[in-house]
Design a protein around this nucleic acid. Structure first.
Lengths: 184, 184
DNA sequence: GATAATAGGGAATGATCGTTTCCTAATAAA
DNA sequence: TTTATTAGGAAACGATCATTCCCTATTATC
């Protein structure tokens, strides 16, 4: 079932919610219509389950990227680099379910809105934590405002997903190099 | 007709393309079904016309925000402030047609993709121009890479529209204050 | 003032959507 | 072996969608 959900994630990422029909879903998930409705109450429930799975995978990927750094600053740098990588190429143009869900459904579906908000706030708190770690280990200036910087970083990461979906090229090293100025 | 198009912009911003029915459109535009199809070939044509109008208005708003500054740095600061303002409150949760069009349609419709790309690139070029002005008048460091900085600024502005649609609060002065570090 | 032309409105249409229902096959229990 | 239970598949349903067609005013022309 998780593998079927992974396939649903890909379709929802690429086509969004409304442009994805049950037919698209059954084709991607290799399940018949009845089977989908046996496993999920309706289309929204498939979307929510796919979103939860997507969010969990992305959280894990972000945390493992952070683990590649040896201090707070480096951990944050790897997180940003990871975001650029995921915003590019085939995955970049496929798109992000968080920004997709936000843009397409935040105004129409309070369940989706609650989940995207939770995911954004979790990411923001994680970034804020990395900044504090950097301040504690001396790799990041102690004077900067943690919350404001974290929120701007969230804007940057979400924006990269938009720009990546528009297929504009993003140079990871250069872009992140500029973004690291925010830690001064 | 421009006033009807303005009303179409509001609906498309809020609900996106696929969740907006012709019924939604006719109700908002105060036009009957036949009248809409007399003026536009199909729903996509309405969207493209609304997008063009939205993009033109936003370009003008951004340029008038820039005009409030007395040097390159200040002009850029006012542009960013303007973006935060538009990303907040009722307009913020209504959403941006550029990020909406990108996220919902860039993968599905090459006409829309061409237009969102053009709009993003125009904005990026405008920001790059402001940075160069600032470098020329001494208000922005001469050492920074203009293109990389402009692209990151675009990520920030697009990201703010996503975060604003998710209804997370954005403090303009604080956020822009942090972002201005990128000009060091 | 009569007529042609056009803009706008609303009902009808075919297609597609999400959803339900029913059927089949496979597995577990007795 | 037989029966009960369940997972999976496909056809059928009503609703809604984008689109077309036709009618009615209104304006402009002669």
């Amino acid at each position: 079932m998780d593998t079927a959900l992974d396939r649903a994630v890909r379709v929802f990422c690429e086509r969004g919610y409304h442009a994805t029909s049950i037919g698209d879903l059954t084709a991607a998930m290799r399940l018949a219509t009845g089977s989908v409705y046996k496993a999920f109450r309706d289309k929204q429930a498939v979307f929510l389950a796919a979103f939860d799975r997507y969010a969990a995978v992305r959280r894990e990927q972000t945390r493992s990227a952070a683990a590649r750094g040896s201090n707070g600053r480096e951990r944050l740098r790897h997180v940003l680099l990871s975001y650029v990588e995921h915003s590019q190429g085939i995955e970049g143009r496929r798109g992000c379910m968080v920004v997709g869900g936000t843009v397409e459904l935040a105004a129409l579906d309070s369940d989706v809105r609650a989940r995207v908000n939770a995911q954004i706030e979790t990411n923001e708190a994680f970034i804020a934590g990395l900044i504090r770690e950097g301040q504690a280990d001396g790799s990041i200036s102690a004077h900067l405002d943690v919350d404001d910087t974290a929120r701007l970083m969230i804007c940057i990461t979400q924006g990269m997903r938009v720009v990546g979906k528009a297929r504009l090229p993003l140079d990871g090293e250069r872009l992140v190099g500029v973004a690291m100025k925010l830690l001064a």
